[in-house]
């Protein structure tokens, strides 16, 4: 679960740095004294700093020698920076392969969940019938069954299908998200009036065209949010990948990182280096998607 801190780090840091830019635009905030403004800035910066601190220490540790890592007090900037941890990790484990596996898994899962949720959510919102209501209730009901309950049967299913140690095997439980269907259904009900679809039907559009050209563009915000959610759900998944992936080559990064931590020893230096490397793709993707997310949420707020 090493990718957790970076999410929190980025999230908290953003408002801390953003306040300076946003505050002057709000007229009612202007009345406050500059001193109070400054104090709020300082407080938020400090708060942000403490949130990012573990992350900074993790990155710093990756560049430290074993001796310095155990030194007290811990140093934020390594005295003798070394890249031996990185070279060791990259040469002794297929780290890049694991990152690739995780990326492929998370992206495929996010795409699959976005597509299935968009289609199912739209149908359940706009084509109501008795069957749909029952189906929707069943889908919601699946959300209350913990994954651990069907983990083992799912494993046997994967085994029977012969997809252990592969991307399809990893994806088996990650193609549909009941919450996603719920989210999109609510969003469609809330933001797409029937008249819009009727107007398109009269204009001569077919149902698939309506879905692709009218509904999906209007759901951009919700789908963006769902994509991020689904991506990180898969990226941080641990239980299912460790069960279904049994060869070193097929591990995801989460499973791979856990290997540094055995029952008796924790290889701190190499774990830190590996974690620091893992941060690069996940932080990059988050930054990109976050911009998309903010845009999406902002545009759905504009009601016709």
């Amino acid at each position: 679960m090493t990718s957790r801190p970076d999410i929190h780090g980025v999230k908290v840091e953003a408002p801390a740095t953003g306040t300076g830019g946003v505050l002057p635009d709000l007229p009612h905030r202007r009345k406050k004294t500059p001193l109070a403004d400054r104090a709020i800035d300082v407080f938020l910066l400090l708060f942000g700093f403490f949130m990012v601190l573990p992350l900074l220490l993790l990155i710093a540790n990756a560049f430290k020698t074993p001796e310095e890592m155990l030194a007290w007090p811990p140093t934020l900037v390594p005295r003798e920076p070394t890249i031996s941890n990185f070279t060791s990790v990259l040469s002794s484990t297929p780290l890049l392969r694991w990152i690739f596996n995780s990326l492929a898994f998370a992206l495929s899962s996010a795409i699959a969940i976005s597509v299935t949720s968009a289609i199912a959510g739209y149908l359940m919102a706009k084509f109501p019938s008795r069957t749909m209501s029952v189906l929707f209730a069943v889908i919601l009901a699946t959300a209350i069954v913990p994954f651990e309950v069907y983990m083992i049967p799912l494993y046997f299913q994967a085994q029977a299908l012969g997809i252990l140690n592969s991307l399809p095997g990893l994806l088996l439980g990650y193609l549909v998200m009941s919450f996603g269907i719920f989210l999109i259904r609510q969003n469609v009900i809330h933001s797409i009036p029937d008249e819009l679809l009727e107007a398109a039907r009269i204009d001569g559009a077919g149902e698939i065209w309506i879905f692709v050209r009218v509904v999906v563009p209007l759901l951009r915000g919700a789908l963006g949010a769902l994509f991020v959610l689904a991506f990180f759900q898969a990226w941080t998944a641990f239980a299912w990948p460790i069960i279904v992936a049994t060869t070193k080559e097929s591990y995801t990064i989460e499973v791979g990182l856990a290997l540094f931590q055995t029952g008796f020893t924790i290889d701190l230096g190499r774990l830190s280096a590996a974690s620091a490397l893992v941060l690069v793709p996940s932080v990059t993707i988050f930054i990109f998607l976050r911009r998309n997310l903010v845009q999406g949420v902002a545009s759905t707020g504009l009601k016709e």
């Binding site: 009036p193 039907r201 204009d203 001569g204 009218v214 016709e304």
Partner: peptide, 29 residues
Amino acid sequence: QPKHRNIAMVFQNYALYPHMTVAENMGFS
């Protein structure tokens, strides 16, 4: 089917496609 009736309908809430410009809205059909 509605699209083959050769009619045009104007709705109370206008039912304009929010993600299209005025020209795209008008040229949609």
